[in-house]
Design a protein around this nucleic acid. Structure first.
Lengths: 195, 195
DNA sequence: GGAATACGATACGCATCGTCTCGTAATTAC
DNA sequence: GTAATTACGAGACGATGCGTATCGTATTCC
């Protein structure tokens, strides 16, 4: 291994490219992202993009892996009341989806996951599922969910409802979050009511 | 209204184009569909495609509307036992998704729904939801589901689970369908009350 | 028989992709 | 300090695909 001589990879350029890609994805959708637009917005030569990423899908996949896309960073809180926690989490998620500014970002995210397996495996879609499952596991230990409840399937079902909301046009119904939680977690016991 | 003179639109060409588009979508994915490939496979001039459809997304949207994509054509049967009917329907849907041959088609379908609002509104994604809801409504009338069950949300949740299966790589677990039904329809009463 | 129109074929302009090649600046080896 | 090496911004380049325009031909109605 010959010792490396010459300048190192510019971290500033790398971050600028990822931020630019997320911005372009948000405003133009997955198909509308242009590599030259990413480079221009990042103040970078196009070759600098291609030097480190092989394709458009790879850049966007890296955006997710680096947490450039905020909606995915949230996890349900744990106040002890699983119903309240999940309801609030779903409400916030639906608010994000209904926000026209973020809607394009969410759609682009799904499109990227479809085109590039790397994105899907980068836990782009499945990380909310893991967050939900973790919260359900805690509720199960606290006795708020039946021990035989299938928390994996519950987490997938809730996330699936949200993904469908991204797919379908138009705004959600005002009580969508409550209806989802009430339908999918009917057996949950409020903390104070037990014993 | 001047009387129409000249040849009529060729139904053979129209069907050939839709079939070719579905085949290309299946084998190359949404982004990989080439208009010239559709025309060539259909044995048609490219202009004949553009004469009747404005864009790639429109052709694929029409594939769905015309039922060229078989996985969407099914609706749950009604044998009187809602659990059995839905379980079988979900099992068949998962089998389709797990089939490598059809997986590309399902992914292309979702990608098309994301890129083109026309596709999403052509009930591509929501038509299974409607089918499920109809079956649930019948079960509700038959007393197999509680009268206050939120059948809209149930239908969305089941369809959402399936959509996530399309998004994520790898095969499903063998008992995935049973787990989904058991988790989402825990209160349903079997018709014959047979143990 | 004549006019209108859809057809298959193909040529064209345009946009974007991804590669290649500059000159420049940064970093390390010696 | 100097030279070698390498990432950088900038932009030219060919390849590819989109959507339009224009043929001659075949079909259908007046």
């Amino acid at each position: 291994m010959a010792a490396r001589r010459g300048p190192k990879r510019s971290e500033a350029a790398r971050l600028a490219i990822l931020e630019a890609a997320a911005a372009e994805l948000s405003s133009h959708g997955y198909e509308g992202v242009r590599m030259e637009a990413i480079a221009a917005r990042a103040g970078v030569g196009k070759q600098t993009v291609y030097r480190w990423w092989p394709s458009k899908g790879a850049v966007i996949a890296d955006c997710l892996a680096e947490g450039m896309i905020p909606p995915l960073a949230y996890a349900p809180s744990d106040t002890g009341d699983v119903i309240a926690d999940i309801t609030r989490w779903v409400e916030e998620a639906i608010a994000l989806i209904d926000d026209d500014g973020r809607r394009g970002l969410m759609r682009g995210l799904l499109a990227a996951a479809l085109e590039s397996p790397a994105v899907a495996q980068a836990e782009a879609v499945s990380s909310p599922v893991a967050d939900l499952r973790a919260r359900f596991a805690a509720a199960q230990e606290a006795g708020q969910l039946r021990p035989d409840a299938d928390i994996d399937t519950l987490a997938v079902a809730i996330n699936g409802c949200l993904v469908l909301r991204v797919l379908e046009p138009g705004p959600s119904q005002p009580d969508a979050a409550q209806r989802i939680v009430r339908t999918l977690l009917p057996g949950a016991q409020p903390e104070a009511a037990s014993t």
